[in-house]
Design a protein around this nucleic acid. Structure first.
Length: 497
RNA sequence: GGUGCUGUGGCCGAGUGGCUAGGCUCAGGUCUGCAAAACCUGCUACAGCGGUUCGAAUCCGCUCGGCACCUCCA
């Protein structure tokens, strides 16, 4: 924790020093998935951003309570007849219980998170599990006179809120007047629009139409919670009225997060988090990857290489590494070439790390490893600049290779330090797992077999029977094993493609 | 139309006033029976035009692109 971490706060638009409200405890809330369809890679990028932050904070010694919700009471479909709930709609189409839909995609979501080596949050609350809390919040907001009921629905009174708090639009840089002016023309007519006192008002409780499957009893009749309410209710419940960090995708800034702030203020006189973090979009050919764009990659398609835009598959850790090579606030463009470059680079680093254990120390270091380490931290402390941190890892890889070849020397002290630090940083902070680690016993068997084959080939080479040695080498290559002849003998590895 | 972000070498992608990341690709080399791998070396870019400055990719202005949000979306 002796590191000064700076994070870019979306409110205020500048990097601020991170100082928890109650150190060493940190409360972090992240908007999770809506479980009515498969997570795609764009979603994964956002969760990766906050996985990195969670890991880094933990690494620094903070005790983090990481809350990431599961939205299982789907948001309203904007174009559905009469505003249907997404999950309910999907359930109706597939003739399933809504909770079957929710279960299927929740399981899928967690599976994918696991493949990417994302740590599970401390709490993963569901919207449907917190209807009571949401109803309570609606009540409180109504008591403050900042919401009104019409025909069994409750709307948040944005105009009235603004008179009191004067901060609506602060996060997203929006002005209410403009929102009102823009809300009329060329907008789709949302269901219930005519019930609102003002077009900028939003529902915090919605009356369920007769065919709406997901519904709960409330003081205003049977209905379901509004689009933005769950995050306000659950963050308040688990992290308090004021907490440290709230994260989510850039696309949620408005209206979702703006509404969240307003609800929190209206209910509890506090806007919730101190710092808002927003991660940028993953793009494909410059266009945002999204469900509605039809260009979303499923993680499985990526791993298998079955997507039309891909020439081959890439492993989860390659993809993770690829994503970490871009800063979280920049858009990241997804392409074969970029992935391929990341795969090569990733291998370069892991190869060097695998050499660490076998390095021999010398009298003194030819390189300032202490400073190097502090530069890695400096990068991370600068708003989680993982690309720069990784650039430093490449520098380290270069040095490690030199040391390994005897061209450079490292002191005992430095060597012990990096033998500890580099794997820890890679695994604990960046969350990069060694994919080549097969199951223990099998690994030994394979190693033994490989050693046998290598010895046979080297005997052939010694006899200058290159025909035989090349057959061995080429046949191995066909089954995905690459031999590596070096000064100190022959090694091998599985090829990536 | 409004708001915001952005335009970096063949590709990806850092960098915010001078010390000008990093990876991939490509070329040359070392090593090797030959390859592969590894290593070394090389490739010096910041959309255009103008301005500020001793000095700008970095600040300002204009022009031209691109993107995002304004509507469910991470």
């Amino acid at each position: 924790m002796n590191q000064d971490l700076f994070l870019y706060n979306s409110i205020g638009g500048q990097k601020v020093k991170f100082e928890p409200i109650n150190p060493p405890f940190v409360g972090m809330y992240v908007c999770g998935p809506t479980v009515y369809s498969d997570v795609h890679l764009g979603n994964c990028r956002t969760f990766l951003t906050f996985d990195l932050l969670y890991r880094y904070l933990t690494h620094l010694g903070y005790k983090v309570r990481y809350v990431r919700n599961i939205t299982d009471a789907g948001h309203l479909e904007n174009d559905a007849d009469a505003g249907e709930d997404k999950i309910a709609k999907k359930a109706r189409l597939e003739e399933l219980e809504p909770m079957e839909i929710v279960q299927r995609y929740t399981v899928g979501f967690r599976h994918v998170m696991g493949l990417f080596n994302m740590l599970p949050p401390s709490i993963e609350p569901t919207a449907t599990g917190h209807i009571v809390e949401q109803i309570e919040m609606v009540k409180k907001i109504m008591e403050k006179g900042l919401a009104y009921e019409v025909n069994g629905s409750v709307y948040f009174d944005v105009i009235k809120y603004q008179e009191q708090f004067k901060n609506y639009g602060e996060l997203s840089g929006r002005k209410i007047d403009e929102l009102i002016a823009g809300a009329g023309a060329e907008k789709r007519t949302l269901e219930g629009q005519d019930e609102k006192r003002n077009p900028v008002d939003f529902a915090i409780w919605k009356k369920a139409s007769p065919y709406h499957i997901m519904r709960w009893v409330s003081p205003w009749g049977e209905g379901f919670p509004g689009w933005h309410l769950e995050c306000s209710a659950m963050s308040t419940k688990y992290l308090g009225e004021e907490f440290d960090i709230h994260g989510g995708g850039m696309d949620l800034k408005f209206p979702h997060h703006e509404a969240e702030i307003a609800q929190n203020n209206a209910c509890c006189n506090h806007g919730g988090p101190r710092i808002w973090l927003h991660s940028n979009m993953l793009t494909v050919n410059g266009k945002r990857m999204g469900k509605s764009e039809g260009n979303a990659f499923l993680p499985e398609e990526l791993f298998a290489g079955s997507h039309p835009l891909l020439t081959k598959g890439y492993s989860p850790m390659t993809v993770r590494f690829f994503m970490l090579q871009a800063h979280y606030r920049s858009t990241l463009d997804f392409s074969n070439e970029a992935l391929h470059a990341a795969e090569k680079g990733f291998k370069r680093i892991t190869d060097a790390v695998n050499l660490l254990a076998s390095l021999k120390s010398g009298v003194a270091s030819d390189f300032n490893w202490k400073q190097w380490e502090s530069e890695v931290y400096a990068a991370m402390n600068d708003d989680l600049n993982s690309p720069v941190a990784i650039a430093h890892l490449f520098e380290a890889a270069k040095r490690i290779n030199s040391i390994s070849e005897g061209k450079e020397s490292v002191s005992k002290e430095d060597l012990e330090r990096i033998q500890y630090f580099i794997p820890v940083f890679l695994q604990d902070v960046l969350g990069i797992r060694n994919e080549n680690m097969a199951a223990g016993n099998e690994e030994n068997t394979v190693d033994g077999l490989m050693q046998l084959i290598i010895n046979l080939r080297n005997e052939a080479r010694f006899r200058k029977d290159f025909q035989t040695s090349d057959i061995i080498r080429d046949s191995l290559k066909e089954v995905g094993i690459q031999l590596k002849d070096g000064k100190e003998g022959t090694g091998w590895e599985k090829t990536t493609s």
